[in-house]
Design a protein around this nucleic acid. Structure first.
Lengths: 196, 196
DNA sequence: ACCTGAACACCGTTCAAGT
DNA sequence: ACCTGAACACCGTTCAAGT
């Protein structure tokens, strides 16, 4: 079967795919069992590329950040579809990468799986979440416009009941998803080393 | 419009909904603009219930854990659909809840928004991720069977290239998603207080 | 003002038929 | 062994027509 090159924003429909491959939609079913396996294969192909990122970083922290950003920046949609194919999936390769950094951070053996899972879950979960948010409810509303609207609502909330939310309304307007994503990673990284 | 009661696992299709409401699919469109707004309304209704959890917990940490588990246990699918409606959404209420715990943990003002966002993102992201994983690719394969298969593959990996993954293959088989979810929360909580 | 329900475009999936 | 493409069931959405 032809290799699937990840091409940015692409609708993974059988019809779009089959048109691209100059064939009928049914042809794909000879190669994959269904949509799940199809997306799984695509996910795997993309993850394989993400592993190389962070291969030679200075600290374990930097290595994890590189890997996380690799997923977040290039292929956030991955989160929606998980590597489930037990076979030759690159999922273990990514997990191995994270796990070694976790070991390098001095996490005791008994906690390593749990800690690596948390990092893994955070990366896929938040990146996927972000990808889902990327397409707005109504296509005509753009991001800044939307954020301004929400920020205005927040700033107008009851000062007693919503003291905190009111206070950060301004930050919402200016916030950057990528930065927030990274700050979460850092929080986890701090938690890892602090818990030692 | 009739209030939508969250009823466990339910397919949010217009047809299923309209049958439930004993009406035609078109009728719903008079009340909501589209699928996004529909799911948004449902999400809001559910989140409103989740806020009460953790209202009176001993420590800020416990309060955040309660809220996180409230989403994870009862309504993991929420993560797939975000509170986007700027209006009277309970989203600010949840965010307020988290924010106050973050303040109680002693996080400096400049970092509060960022930290609260990380907690929020983690909860929705990982819970949603988990909901997506809940339905397997092929319906006939159940969870334990699947985990055993993956675990066996992991245990069989190259000892040099996959030293870490091999080593935790056993833990994968026995792992509990809920526990992993909580351990990630704890990692973040530790990171929050350690970074002070 | 609010509901009805047929209709449209689109999707994943199947399958008899081809080579 | 591998591809074709019409067909099926299903989905979100629209809209003329009803009350």
């Amino acid at each position: 079967m032809p290799v699937i090159h990840s091409a940015g924003r692409f609708s993974w429909t059988y019809r779009a795919l089959s048109e691209r491959l100059a064939t009928g939609p049914g042809a794909i079913y000879w190669h994959v069992a269904g949509k799940g396996e199809l997306l799984g294969a695509a996910t795997d192909a993309v993850l394989a590329g993400a592993v190389t990122a962070g291969a030679s970083d200075a600290t374990p922290q930097d290595a994890i950040r590189s890997l996380a950003l690799g997923v977040f920046d290039d292929h956030p949609w991955i989160g929606t579809q998980l590597a489930r194919a037990p076979g030759q999936s690159p999922m273990p390769r990514v997990f191995e990468n994270i796990g070694r950094q976790v070991q390098a951070l001095g996490v005791p053996a008994a906690a390593q799986f749990s800690v690596a899972s948390a990092v893994w879950n955070y990366i896929l979960g938040v990146a996927g979440q972000n990808a889902a948010n990327a397409r707005p409810v109504r296509p005509e509303t753009d991001r800044t416009e939307f954020l301004n609207a929400v920020s205005a609502v927040w700033a107008d909330l009851d000062p007693d009941e919503y003291a905190f939310t009111r206070g950060v309304a301004g930050r919402l307007r200016d916030h950057d998803d990528r930065t927030e994503f990274l700050s979460g990673i850092d929080l986890i990284l701090t938690g890892i080393t602090a818990g030692r």
